[in-house]
Amino acid sequence: MLPEQEESGVVEGSRFVFVGGLHRSGTTPLARLLARHPEVAGISGSGVSEDEGVHLQDVYPPIRAHGGMGRFAHDPRAHLTEDSPLVSDENAQRLVESWSPYWDTSRRLLLEKSPGNLVMGRFLQALFPGSALVVVVRHPVVASLALEKWNPWPVARNGRRHTSLPDLVGHWVRAHELLLEDAPHHRRLLVLRYEDLVADPSARLGEVADHLGLGSPLPADGIRAGASDRYTETWEAMRTGSPLARRRRRQVEERWGEAVSRWGYSLEDLTAVGPREALPTAAP
């Protein structure tokens, strides 16, 4: 019997913490900080990219089955909820068996981080009742420029086609629309803006610690300031740059300006961040 399993054979869901957020949103540094806490075990030594649990299991498809980075949220099949036929005690146990070899299961909380958790939190909650979800949100232009850097060619070696900056921002909008739709169904959801975390790491990590019921503070020394500066400078240069650069910026502003403002973000000034009260919360 696994340490995560009750006498009845049902997985004890309240032990699980899931971290989600689009690629280049800051989920990795947050997950690493959490895993340094003595009460939290993160997946480590797995040999897969960023020790993400999605690559270690065969219960649900990885995001590459839905178009991959910058595309997956547009595929309705990526949005898993409590209504999925994959929700079962057997599949919950299969996930635990896939992840347990890479956890220190003597710790109270067990952490799994994968970008797709952003759009499948309700599914994970159904598999592991009582589990917590922490979502990291980063400015859509910054996250999209950072992701675009990973795929600069029209067609990559693996056959993946380039996704334009306006389309990457559009994917950001769709993914976070799904999060807004899902929020009322969550019981333990915390949405954390990357910019707020960088501005005041101790305060925001204190919120995370409270959300998870940790008995001591999280370390705040792994949050690096200035990581968004180069992308802010790139965006500003696009204002008066080449005709193509100006056109790309204009497309983003015209298509997505209103949608991103819902999250307290501005396309005029990427460093301006609105009140945190606008962020979605779990059901009362």
Rank of each mutant, 00 (worst) to 15 (best):
85 P>K: 11
10 V>S: 05
282 A>P: 05
179 L>G: 05
54 V>W: 01
107 R>I: 02
246 R>M: 11
52 E>S: 14
9 G>K: 01
27 T>F: 05
281 T>R: 14
10 V>Y: 03
192 L>C: 05
21 G>V: 05
233 E>P: 00
147 L>G: 04
65 A>M: 09
242 S>V: 00
236 E>K: 13
59 V>S: 03
95 L>Q: 11
83 D>E: 15
173 V>H: 03
222 G>Y: 03
19 V>D: 11
147 L>D: 00
259 A>R: 03
58 D>F: 08
227 A>R: 14
252 V>K: 02
188 R>T: 02
96 V>S: 07
191 V>C: 13
266 S>F: 09
80 L>Y: 12
75 D>A: 15
210 D>H: 10
78 A>H: 10
158 N>T: 12
133 L>D: 02
204 R>N: 06
140 P>C: 04
18 F>I: 10
255 R>F: 09
191 V>F: 04
237 A>N: 00
55 H>T: 06
182 D>W: 07
216 S>L: 13
247 R>L: 13
39 E>I: 08
132 A>Y: 05
160 R>C: 01
20 G>R: 01
56 L>N: 08
151 N>K: 13
63 I>L: 14
19 V>S: 09
264 G>P: 04
127 L>I: 09
67 G>K: 01
201 P>M: 00
216 S>E: 14
64 R>H: 14
32 R>Q: 11
281 T>H: 10
164 S>C: 13
